[in-house]
């Protein structure tokens, strides 16, 4: 499948590579550092950008429609959380909090899938009691176990329906 597609792609490349003269339609600001600089340029003078990007379809494509290549599988499943904590303003450029929450409501970390994770018995290997959540706290929403609160907004309920005990 993959090979086939590659071959077709290459073939069409070969056929067409005989025409000449190529015009770049981009202005000279668009060099390889433009990815980092265009944001400020847009803030400075958006009307200039709109002369060419009149439909904004390029802006939409990167900022709203399709996840960038930097969002690798590892990024989505783990490291985006780390990066968001290094510099949350970079994510703010393209994401509001509603986006993050919508996923955190149902997507769980890999740790949750291991055997016995739901067990409330501290000595069970795999129990969630063996995570950072065990740090003594006086108040659920002010615990240093913030990496659970990223997704669990409120003090959790146990299976029996009671509020989770605090350490």
């Amino acid at each position: 499948m993959k090979m086939k597609l590659l071959i077709i792609g290459l073939f069409s490349l070969l056929i067409a590579s005989v025409t000449l003269a190529v015009d770049s339609t981009k202005p000279s600001t668009h060099n390889s550092t433009w990815e980092k600089q265009h944001g400020q340029a847009a803030k400075t003078n958006m009307s200039e950008c709109l002369m060419c990007h009149e439909e904004r379809s390029e802006c939409i494509a990167c900022h709203e429609d399709t996840a960038p290549r930097s969002h690798t599988v590892t990024f989505v499943n783990k490291t985006h959380g780390l990066e968001a904590r290094w510099n949350r303003t970079t994510c703010q450029t393209c994401h509001k909090q509603d986006f993050c929450d919508s996923c955190h409501e149902t997507a769980y970390p890999m740790s949750h899938a291991r055997a016995n994770f739901a067990s409330g018995v501290q000595t069970d290997p795999g129990s969630h009691c063996g995570t950072s959540c065990v740090i003594p706290v006086g108040n659920w929403s002010n615990t240093p176990a913030k990496n659970c609160i990223v997704c669990h907004k409120t003090r959790p309920m146990t299976k029996a329906g009671a509020l989770h005990t605090m350490k």
């Binding site: 590579s17 770049s24 981009k26 433009w34 439909e55 960038p68």
Partner: peptide, 29 residues
């Protein structure tokens, strides 16, 4: 493959450079 210079100022990148940042292939009208 044989190729010819794309006409641009200074160090302007080729038109499709954005595909390195985002694979999205929507072309402007």
């Amino acid at each position: 493959l044989p190729a010819f210079a794309y006409v641009g100022d200074a160090y302007v990148t080729p038109d499709s450079w954005s595909k390195h940042v985002n694979a999205n292939g929507i072309k402007a009208s």
